[in-house]
Design a binder for these strands. Structure first.
Lengths: 220, 220
DNA sequence: AGAGATACATACATGCATGTATGTTTCAAG
DNA sequence: CTTGAAACATACATGCATGTATGTATCTCT
C-alpha cells in the first residue's frame, strides 16, 4: 500500500473515526485496542497512528466531530428566537432530544461519553473539553433563564443558575437512563414534557401543544 | 505469610475492598490492575484472587457493600411515613443526597458507577444489578407517585411513571454533574430545592421549610 | 521528470495484566 | 496432636496492547 490522494486520505480518516465510534460504543473506550479499530475500518494500526496521536486523541476528534452540528443547531435557534428566551430553552432541549434519537452519530457519542468512557486523567483532554462545554452550556442556559425572568416569562425571584443546573441535570439524567435502556420510555416525548413541566413549576405559562413559534421544517 | 484466623481473613477482605474503592475512584475501573489494588492494600494479587474471582467480582462486592445501608435508610423512611407518600419522596431524595455528600463510601461508589466505570459486557453482572436496582427504584418511585395522586397530594391526571422517571433522572443528573465538579454547587441544597420544585410543578402544596414530618436525628 | 514528502503497511521490542499452579505457614477440627 | 484445609505469597506462562522504527509505493511540487 502507498500514498493516496488528499481526498482519499481524508476518507480513510473518516473511516477510522466511524470505526472508532462503532467499537467504542460496543466495547467501551478502555477495552478497545487500536488494532480492533483499525481492523473494523479495514486498515492497520499504521493508518491509525498516522492520523492520530493515540486513542485519546482519536476520542477528542470524535467528540469534535459531533459537537459542531449541535452547536450550529443551537446558533440557529438563537437567531430565530432572539426575543423569546423561554422558547429558546424549550427548542434547545427538544433539539438535543431529537438529535440523540434520530442522529446515530450524536446518539453513539452520547452513549460513549455517558456510558462507555471512564472520566479519568488519561481522558483529561477530552474530559476538560467536556467539562468546559458543560460549563459554557450551563452559562448559556443560565443567561436564558435570567433573560426569561427579566422579560416576566418566569416568576421574579427565581434563582436562574439553580434552575439552569437542574434543567441541565434533568435532560442529562434522562439521556443517561434512556441510553442505558431505550425501550423504557419515549425519550423525545419525556424530554419535552419534563422541560415544560419544569418551566411551568418556575411560573411559566405555556401554550400546551407548541414550543414557542414554530421553527421551519428542517430536512434530515 | 500463612493462614489467618477467620476474623483476620474478613479484615483483609475489607482492606481489599477499601483499596479497590480508592484506586477505582482515582484511576478508573478499566485502567487499574489487580496488582495496584493488592499493593494499595498492602497485599499481593494472591490475596485478591483468593477472595474474589476477578476484577468484576470485586466490583460487584463493592456495589453490594454500599447498597445495603442505602436500602436500610429507605426502609426506615417507608416505615416512618407510611401514610404520606409525598413526604417519603422528599425524604428519600434528601437522604440520598445526604449520604452522597457525607458518607465517603457512598460518594466514592457513586463516582465509580457514574464516572469511572464503562457500562459494557464485562461489567454485565454489576451492570445488570445496577439496571435492576434502577428499575426497582423506579417502580418504587412510581408507586409513591401513584399513591400521592390517589391521596390528592398531586394533581389528578398526572402520569405517575413519567413523573417518577423524570425525578429519578433529575437526581441522577445532579449527582453526575456534582461528582464531575463538586465545587459548582451545593448538592444537598440543590437536590432538596429541585425535588420540591418538581413536586410543586406537579401540583403539590409543600410547607416551605420542612420536608414532611421531621424524622428523628440520626447519628453518623 | 526527479525528489522529497505523504499515506500508509509491516516488523520489532517492550511491558504489563491476567490466570493458574505451586509453595508455605498457621488455624481448627477430630 | 495430628492432619487437612484455609489464607495467603510466590513463581510461571501466556497474550495482548502499545509505541516506534522501517519499508514502500505513490502523489505532488517545481
Amino acid at each position: 500500500m502507498a500514498r493516496k490522494t488528499k481526498d482519499e486520505a481524508l476518507a480513510t480518516r473518516s473511516q477510522i473515526l466511524d470505526a472508532a465510534e462503532r467499537v467504542f460504543g460496543e466495547r467501551g473506550v478502555a477495552r478497545t485496542s487500536l488494532h480492533e479499530i483499525a481492523e473494523s475500518a479495514g486498515l492497520t494500526r499504521g493508518a491509525v497512528y498516522w492520523h492520530f496521536k493515540d486513542k485519546y486523541d482519536l476520542l477528542s476528534a470524535l467528540w469534535e466531530r459531533c459537537r459542531l452540528p449541535l452547536e450550529a443547531a443551537f446558533a440557529e435557534i438563537d437567531a430565530q428566537l432572539v426575543d423569546d428566551p423561554l422558547a429558546r430553552i424549550r427548542q434547545k432541549t427538544r433539539g438535543v432530544a431529537r438529535s440523540i434519537v434520530h442522529d446515530p452519530r450524536t446518539r453513539n457519542m452520547m452513549g460513549i461519553a455517558l456510558l462507555r468512557c471512564e472520566m479519568v486523567d488519561e481522558i483529561a483532554a477530552s474530559r476538560a473539553r467536556l467539562v468546559g462545554e458543560r460549563d459554557a452550556c450551563l452559562d448559556k442556559i443560565s443567561s436564558e433563564f435570567a433573560a426569561a425572568i427579566l422579560q416576566g416569562q418566569l416568576r421574579k425571584g427565581t434563582d436562574a443558575r439553580a434552575a439552569a443546573i437542574s434543567l441541565h441535570a434533568l435532560i442529562d439524567g434522562l439521556c443517561y437512563h434512556w441510553l442505558l435502556d431505550p425501550s423504557q420510555f419515549d425519550f423525545e416525548a419525556v424530554v419535552a414534557a419534563a422541560t415544560d413541566q419544569w418551566l411551568t413549576g418556575l411560573g411559566a405559562v405555556l401554550s400546551p401543544g407548541k414550543a414557542g413559534p414554530r421553527r421551519p421544517a428542517r430536512r434530515r
